[in-house]
C-alpha cells in the first residue's frame, strides 16, 4: 500500500460523503413517504458521524503504524505519551460521534413511533395526502 493509494481512498471517502449528504437532505425534504424520510435521515446522521471521524483522521505514511486512541500503559512517561500522540488518531471526534449516535437513536425511535401513529390515524404515511386533508379540515374552516 503506498501513499498515493491512501490519498485516493481519502478523496473517495470525502466525495462520497458529500454525495451522501446531498442525497439524504434531498430525501428528507422531497420524499413524501415518511418511512423514506426516516431512512434518509439516518443516512444523514451517519454521514455527519463519518465526517466527524474523518476530522480526527491521521494521514498514514509508510513506516508509521497507526493505532486506536487507547493508552495501554497505565503509568505513562512523557516519552511514551509523545510516541502515543504521534501514532494515535484524534479521540475527541469519536467521543462526539458516540454521543451523536445515541441521540440519533432516540430521535429515530421517536420518529418511528410518530409514523406508526400517523398510519393509525390517517391510514397513510404519505405527507402529500395528509397535507391535502389538513388544508381541507383545518385551514378552510379557519380562514
Amino acid at each position: 500500500m503506498d501513499i498515493e493509494l491512501v490519498r485516493f481512498m481519502f478523496l473517495l471517502t470525502v466525495v462520497s460523503f458529500y454525495v451522501n449528504l446531498a442525497l439524504s437532505i434531498y430525501g428528507v425534504i422531497a420524499k413524501p413517504n415518511l418511512v423514506k424520510k426516516i431512512i434518509a435521515l439516518t443516512i444523514l446522521q451517519d454521514s455527519a458521524s463519518i465526517f466527524a471521524v474523518l476530522v480526527g483522521y491521521k494521514l498514514w505514511r509508510p513506516g508509521l503504524t497507526l493505532q486506536p486512541p487507547v493508552l495501554t500503559d497505565l503509568t505513562p512517561t512523557s516519552e511514551t505519551l509523545k510516541e502515543f500522540v504521534l501514532r494515535s488518531v484524534d479521540p475527541l471526534p469519536q467521543a462526539l460521534v458516540l454521543t451523536a449516535i445515541v441521540i440519533g437513536l432516540a430521535v429515530t425511535v421517536f420518529l418511528t413511533t410518530i409514523t406508526l401513529h400517523i398510519q393509525k390515524h390517517f391510514g397513510t404515511v404519505n405527507v402529500d395526502v395528509i397535507g391535502r386533508l389538513k388544508r381541507e379540515e383545518v385551514y378552510e374552516e379557519v380562514i
Partner: peptide, 15 residues
C-alpha cells in the same frame, strides 16, 4: 392533528 403537528415539527427538526 396533534400527531400530525408533531410529525411536521420532528422531521425537519431532526434534520
Amino acid at each position: 392533528w396533534a400527531v400530525e403537528a408533531s410529525m411536521a415539527y420532528a422531521f425537519i427538526g431532526a434534520l
